[in-house]
């Protein structure tokens, strides 16, 4: 499934990084602890978090993650959004909680 398809199925909001919407999702990782993501997320995964600052984009880029989804209506900070657009890594949003969103994505990807 591509990021675009996931976005359509779940009605996710696209904040930025549209260039990367066609990329294929290999799986997902859920954490708000940055060194947990650094140590355990893997290439091609989607990352679900409530962290909105620029370091999440730095990590997504360094780890070659395919997109970030911000939960519970969190909005990215300005420089986070700018880096998402620069790198072409989609930054998405939802009003769902982490639990609800993860469950839905898990079902769709399995």
């Amino acid at each position: 499934m591509t990021v675009e398809q996931l976005k359509e199925k779940l009605g996710l909001k696209v904040f930025g990084g549209e260039q990367g919407l066609a990329n294929e999702i290999s799986g997902g990782y859920v954490s708000d602890l940055l060194s947990d993501v650094m140590g355990n997320a893997d290439t091609g995964q989607i990352w679900i978090t409530l962290q909105t600052h620029k370091n999440v984009m730095a990590i997504a880029s360094l780890k070659d993650l395919v997109a970030i989804i911000l939960v519970k209506n969190h909005e990215p900070e300005e420089d986070t959004l700018a880096q998402s657009n620069e790198e072409g890594i989609p930054l998405l949003g939802t009003n769902m909680s982490t639990f609800e969103l993860s469950g839905k994505i898990y079902e769709l990807l399995k």
Binding site: L33, L34, S35, D36, M38, T49, Q51, H53, N55
Partner: peptide, 9 residues
């Protein structure tokens, strides 16, 4: 608060 400080680095 930024999500650092898990003691995993």
């Amino acid at each position: 608060e930024m999500g650092f400080g898990a003691g995993m680095g």
